[in-house]
Design a protein around this nucleic acid. Sequence first.
DNA 1: AAATCATTATAACGACTGTCATAGATCAAG
DNA 2: CTTGATCTATGACAGTCGTTATAATGATTT
Lengths: 217, 217
Amino acid sequence: MISMLDYDDCYSKTMPMNDSAVDPRQRLVLAAADMLRQRGLNATSVREVAKLAQAPLGSTYHYFPGGKPQLISEAVQLSGEQVARYLTRTFAAGPRDGLLAFVALWRQLLQDKACRAGCPVMAVAADDSAADDDAPMLAAVAAAIRAWQQPLGDSLVTAGLPAARAARLATLLIAAVEGAILLCRAQGNTTALDEVAEELRLLLDNALAGVAAQGEP
Amino acid sequence: MISMLDYDDCYSKTMPMNDSAVDPRQRLVLAAADMLRQRGLNATSVREVAKLAQAPLGSTYHYFPGGKPQLISEAVQLSGEQVARYLTRTFAAGPRDGLLAFVALWRQLLQDKACRAGCPVMAVAADDSAADDDAPMLAAVAAAIRAWQQPLGDSLVTAGLPAARAARLATLLIAAVEGAILLCRAQGNTTALDEVAEELRLLLDNALAGVAAQGEP
DNA sequence: AAATCATTATAACGACTGTCATAGATCAAG
DNA sequence: CTTGATCTATGACAGTCGTTATAATGATTT
């Protein structure tokens, strides 16, 4: 079974956003992602991101001439890719182990940050006004979600499910886990995520048991 | 079967937030809820809410001496209660019909607002910084979620499921639907919600079929 | 050493935010 | 009619927002 708590691979506990060994540009992106996680899009200001990254404010517009939309988009993209890599790795061991790892990832984050954290990608999805300049941000969010659905769907297909069902289940897993994160934020504990995880586990076992029964007579 | 598109009971298409027949105080709350839906917490300004409600800015602090936190809290509370009433009514006809109505409610909203809308309750959950003054808002969100879980859980228990399982399933339904709304916002269509709805329907049928098989031998 | 480039520092711009104070209007009760 | 309470109107406060301009720095290359 995959070690499902190698949380550092996706989100290091000591984020290098103020580690001067990392170049300032990446520090800014990491700081933006961390702030999105806790405060949401509109409460994440360029000034505070720069301060958190220990970079001068002027540098922000040097590295990101597109301004805040570009900075946020890159933060969403980076976070999305990190999660996508994690999902690809963990779901390679099968949907069941993948789900456990997926849940464990977010559970750890919620616990570390006292349920004051969330997912940067969903923060942007929930908070953007979908105006003119927000288009690149929304595009980054949509791309991240697609990149998450891929490994989940592949894993379910490999396990024997039809493609259409696998795609639907992948969407459900992502929606349910992300929704549970919101519930946890509101309630201040991880109960909702635990309950959702248990039901999703039962659901997967059920779906895959049907495949096994049909596949080996 | 319950008419699952009486959307106006929960969220009127022509919101009375600028209907001068409604008293200004309630107009402000309705306008705040509508703005939360589309823009999120931090992008919802007191000035714009007042403008949308066609109420003077000064009136806002007359009716809501607690300021923005009070206004937002009441908007969350109102929206939460509306949805809770809708859930109580629709899930009384059984979990399956309730789920269909639940999904239809949000699907209609997404379609009407070109996927630019969401749930005010979740908007606050995703966007609050959990600071000092945000406590009443978070409390309103948590209360709303509890009020949603109740009718879902009751309906599932009535249908024959054990209490613990019913509670978990209720949480899953809420988390999955709310998460799907986020995905729809990001992707600009209602595909995610439709996929999630289909899987949740299968899941419910499965769980309830198990009960029926066990209940009538 | 000189010149070119990337980066920083500083300050400021206009627009917006939540909040409040105060003066004017409206209207019911005495 | 007058008093008192409720509501509106207006404008301002201190602060933050995203963004930009410009000058000073630092490093790299010629």
